[in-house]
Design a protein around this nucleic acid. Structure first.
Lengths: 331, 331
DNA sequence: CTGAAAGCGCTTACAG
DNA sequence: CTGAAAGCGCTTACAG
C-alpha cells in the first residue's frame, strides 16, 4: 500500500534510516552495493517519501507559489502552462494563490510565506509600480526568491520576465502610420496598469513623432468595447485605425464597427495585443502583437529555480522578443 | 519578522505551546482571558503557524490536489476559478498537477498521494470509463477523498459533478430538427471521451427518433475544423445544420463555410457546446449550450470539502442544469 | 561508508 | 482549563 515509511524501508533493507535518506538525497555518499539494495526495497514497497515530513526537516518544500489575479484570462492560463511544464522538469510542485478584488493582497502574501514555499512567481500585468515595491519588500524580508512574470517594473532589483511593451506599442502604431492612417486610436483600459502604460507610451511616442495628437480611449469594462462606448465616443469622430491593448477589446470594437457598416480593413485598420485565439477566430482575422506568454511563464519559472538555488544569476531581468502577426484586419 | 514560532508566542504570553495550539485549533477549550492574551501576542508578533509542521503533526495539510490535463482550455481555467473561490472560503490551499500526454497518469497520481493532500479534484472531460476506475482505485486505496469534475461516469460509487451531456446533445439536435433541418451533422473529436460519447448518444437518439441517419464527423485535430476537412468531407455533401462538441470546433467550421459562400443561419445553422467567449466574439454569434463550468468547479470543491470532513454525504453525484443560449447562428 | 541522535514546528492524548 | 511529553516522518551534522 501507500503507507511504507522510511523506517519500513530501512528495516527491510537492513540499514539505518539515515542511509535510506542518503540514497534518496545524496546517493554518491552510499556504497554502490548498499544503494542497490535499498533502491530495490524502495521499489518493492512502492515507497515515496512523505513530502511534508521532508519539507519540515529540510526546510525546503520543493513547492513554488504562483500568485494570479484571474485564472480565466487566456494569457494567464497560457503562462501557467509554461510554468507547469518547467516546474515538472525541475520536480517542483505548484501552489496556486488567486487574489480576488475583495482580498487584501498583503494578507495573502503573508499566507504564502506561512505556506513555506521555496519561491514565488507573481503573474500579473495589472500592477502599478508601488504595488511592485510592496511585494518585493515582503518577499525580501522573508528571504523568499520571487520573479514577476509579465509585469513591467523599472526597479532594477526586481527579477522579471516580460516583453518590451513600449516598443511593441510603438511598432504597431508605426505600422498603422506607415499605412497612411491618420486617426489612430488606442483602446485602453480605465484602470492603470504599468503594462498598459508602456503600451500607451509607445503609441504616444509614435504619434508624436508623426506630428499627430495621441488619442486614447478607455473602456469602462476591462475587456470589451460595447455599443454604447462606440456610439458615444466614436460615431461622430473620424477613426481609420484602432489598436486594442487586448485582442478582446480590439475584436469587440471591430465587430461593432462592422455592424455599423464600416469596412475593415479598407476604412478601418484594427490590431490587438497578445495574439490569442480570439484573434484567429474573429472575422476578419485580427492583426496582433504576439506576446510569447507560454515562454514568459517557462522562462520565469526557470529563472526562479536559479534564484532558489542561489546560483549567482547574472541576468534577473529578461526581455523576450515579440513580433507583429499581420492578418486581414489591417492592410 | 516572519520567524516567530509557537514557542516565541508561548514564551511571550507566559503559557505553554500546547495552549497556543489550542487557541488556534480549539479556542473553546481555553479560558477567555488566556485566549485574549495569546491572541494579542500572536497579533503583535505577526505569528502564522508553519503549515508544513502543522501538516506533519496533524496529518492534515488543508491542501487539495487539482488534476488537470490542459490549463489552457477555457473551460478548465473557468472551473479553476470556481474551485479557487470555494477553496479560499474553506481555507484550503490548491496544488496543481497537470498531466501531459507524455506522462504516466498512475505515476502522477502516486506522486499526489505522496504530497499528502487531503483530497483530490479530478478535472477532465477527456476520460474514458476504464481510466475512471483506475483513478478511483488508487485514491480509495489511500483513503483520499476525490471528486470528478465535468467527467461522466456511470459508476455510482464515483463522486462527480457535471451536466447531463446526453440530454444536452439531444436537445440541441432536437432544436435543429424542429427548425426543419434535415442534414444535421455532429462535429466531434477523433479521440473518444465519455463526455463526447454522451453528446453523440443524445444527438443520435434525436436523429433516430426523427427517422434520420446520424452523421458524425471527427476532426483530426481536437479543436478546429480546417479547410482541408471541410473540402474533403463537406463540399460535396448537403449540410444544413452542424453541432460542434466544442465552440471552437463550431466557430472554425462556421468560418470556413461562410468563406465558402454559405449563408448562416439561412442555409446553415451552427451551434456549439460550452458557451465560451468564442461564441460571443464570433460573427454571427454562436448558439451554444451553456455549461456552467464555474459552478461545476465550485460545487465539486464544495462536495470535496464535505467528503474530507467525512460527513455522511447523501448525494455524491450532482447534475447541474444547462440551457441553450440562442444566438444568430441558428434561426 | 554508515549509524545514533537531535531537531524541524507543530498537534494531541494523557494527567492533573 | 493547562502543561509535560510523545510523536508526525523525515534530514543532517557528528562520530566512528
Amino acid at each position: 500500500m501507500s503507507n511504507a515509511t522510511i523506517y519500513d524501508v530501512a528495516g527491510a533493507a537492513g540499514v539505518s534510516l539515515a542511509t535510506v535518506s542518503r540514497v534518496l538525497n545524496n546517493p554518491e555518499k552510499v556504497k554502490e552495493e548498499t544503494r542497490q539494495r535499498v533502491l530495490k526495497v524502495i521499489k518493492e514497497l512502492g515507497y515515496r517519501p512523505n513530502v511534508i515530513a521532508r519539507g519540515l526537516a529540510s526546510r525546503k518544500t520543493t513547492t513554488v507559489g504562483i500568485v494570479i489575479s484571474d485564472v480565466t484570462r487566456a494569457s494567464v492560463a497560457e503562462m501557467l502552462g509554461g510554468i507547469s511544464d518547467i516546474a515538472h522538469n525541475y520536480k517542483y510542485s505548484i501552489k496556486l494563490f488567486s487574489i480576488r478584488e475583495d482580498m487584501d493582497v498583503m494578507d495573502v502574501l503573508k499566507d504564502i510565506v506561512a505556506e513555506q514555499v521555496d519561491g514565488v512567481l507573481y503573474l500579473n500585468d495589472e500592477l502599478n509600480e508601488s504595488r511592485v515595491e510592496e511585494v518585493k519588500e515582503i518577499f525580501q524580508d522573508n528571504q523568499i526568491p520571487f520573479v514577476f512574470a509579465n509585469v513591467v517594473s523599472d526597479d532594477p532589483e526586481v527579477p522579471m520576465v516580460s516583453i518590451d511593451y513600449e516598443k511593441a506599442g510603438y511598432e504597431i502604431t508605426k505600422m498603422m502610420l506607415d499605412h497612411h492612417r491618420k486617426n489612430v486610436y488606442l483602446l485602453s483600459t480605465a484602470r492603470r496598469y504599468s503594462v498598459n502604460d508602456k503600451k500607451e507610451a509607445g503609441y504616444s511616442k509614435a504619434m508624436q513623432e508623426a506630428g499627430l495628437e495621441p488619442k486614447i480611449f478607455r473602456t469602462s469594462g476591462d475587456t470589451h468595447v460595447n455599443r454604447q462606448h462606440f456610439k458615444t465616443f466614436f460615431s461622430d469622430k473620424k477613426v481609420d485605425a484602432a489598436i486594442g491593448v487586448r485582442d478582446s477589446i480590439a475584436v469587440s470594437f471591430m465587430n461593432i464597427a462592422i455592424d455599423d457598416g464600416v469596412k475593415v480593413p479598407k476604412d478601418l485598420s484594427v490590431a490587438g495585443f497578445q495574439n490569442t485565439k480570439y484573434a484567429l477566430l474573429s472575422r476578419p482575422n485580427l492583426t496582433s502583437i504576439d506576446v510569447p506568454v507560454y515562454d514568459i511563464g517557462a522562462v520565469s519559472m526557470r529563472l526562479l529555480t536559479k534564484l532558489m538555488n542561489a546560483k549567482d544569476v547574472d541576468n534577473i531581468r529578461i526581455i523576450l522578443p515579440h513580433y507583429i502577426v499581420k492578418r486581414q484586419s489591417t492592410i
